[in-house]
């Protein structure tokens, strides 16, 4: 077991001694900074003074819009209806709209797709990079089984993904706090769900989203590992896994009308579609269904990766 701990330390050393790793972290923080300012236009502003009066005036305005757009633009109707209900709820229960870091933190989970790409790069380099550099020969002629070496690499990559998630959270909290203010962060979030307004704890909601992000990262890292072991070439493995993961949502938009498409990997990776206010990609999908599908993919990927890696002659 002490030997296995050594293997993980080795993999960590190889990840964090690469200058590229810190460039990646820098890119992530820079993106948090940029989006913090961009989201400013999307997030509702703080309403001060006689805010109840102001919300009522807004509701009248929204109602007018609904009448005007009723036939031509169903999207606006839906959006405005929800907004009106939430405003009514705020007035009734005395929740003043305060723009705070909490609003931004909620949006910050969208950064998971960037973290997925960075994780794919590290995962792809972790196995295939050893083949490309020829160091795989040095690595495999030691008294450690190939399975353990692979597992240590996988754990190190997952740890890296978790580090990025934490970095994203901390950076979003600090930068978001500076841009939006820390005040009012403890107010519950109001969401329009199934025809009525619900209150939700901000941080509970955020942790749930980060948890979903973690699951997505694990399945994508497994996918990248498989490609990495099959291709044995880091550029090819990284490019293939990134292209596939990015085109996943595009492919889904074409095939989501077929019911079998719910079994496709990319239909299930983004679990945040099960959070309040969003609808699943394909009708009839549930959180449990997605987790079951992902689990099957995870097992298939893992078995394939381990079998190929164990059997393969190393001629690099």
């Amino acid at each position: 077991m002490s030997n296995f701990w050594g293997l993980i330390r080795n993999e960590n050393m190889k990840i964090y001694r690469k200058p590229g790793t810190f460039v990646m972290m820098g890119i992530l923080v820079a993106l948090v900074l940029i989006t913090a300012f961009l989201f400013k236009n999307i997030v509702d502003e703080t309403v001060t003074g006689n805010w109840k009066q102001k919300l009522q005036t807004e509701n009248v305005q929204l109602q007018k819009e609904i009448k005007k757009e009723a036939k031509s633009n169903p999207g606006i109707v839906k959006y405005n209806t929800e907004k009106i209900e939430i405003n009514k709820y705020r007035i009734k229960h005395n929740y003043q709209p305060i723009r705070s870091v909490a609003d931004y933190l909620q949006k910050s989970t969208s950064m998971v797709s960037i973290i997925v790409i960075l994780t794919l790069i590290v995962a792809g380099g972790s196995v295939a990079g050893e083949f490309s550099a020829g160091t795989i020969k040095m690595l495999l002629i030691r008294p450690s089984s190939r399975t353990m070496i692979l597992l240590s690499k996988f754990i190190a990559v997952i740890l890296f993904a978790i580090v990025l998630l934490l970095l994203n959270f901390v950076a979003s909290f600090i930068i978001g706090g500076l841009v939006y203010g820390f005040e009012g962060a403890s107010q519950p979030i109001l969401e329009y769900v199934n025809g009525h307004v619900e209150t939700m704890n901000v941080f509970g909601e955020i942790w749930k989203q980060y948890g979903y992000g973690c699951i997505e990262l694990i399945i994508m890292a497994t996918f990248a590992f498989m490609l990495s072991v099959m291709f044995r070439n880091s550029s090819l493995a990284i490019a293939a896994s990134i292209i596939l993961s990015m085109s996943g949502s595009i492919i889904m938009s074409f095939i989501s009308k077929y019911s079998w498409s719910k079994y496709v990997l990319f239909a299930n990776t983004d679990l945040t579609m099960y959070t309040a206010g969003r609808t699943p990609l394909v009708k009839g999908m549930t959180l449990n269904f997605s987790i079951a599908v992902l689990l099957v993919y995870f097992i298939v990927f893992t078995v394939l990766t381990v079998v190929v890696f164990k059997k393969r002659d190393v001629a690099a």
């Binding site: 001694r17 690469k18 020829g134 002629i141 030691r142």
Partner: peptide
């Protein structure tokens, strides 16, 4: 394999690590 030390073809080491870090890496195995 515990009894074997080897170089197969070229001595390919981790270029982004120092010589010492490379040895540390293999010593942990």
């Amino acid at each position: 394999i515990a009894n074997v030390g080897a170089i197969v073809e070229n001595p390919e080491m981790y270029k982004f690590l120092t010589g010492y870090q490379n040895l540390l890496h293999f010593s942990r195995m």
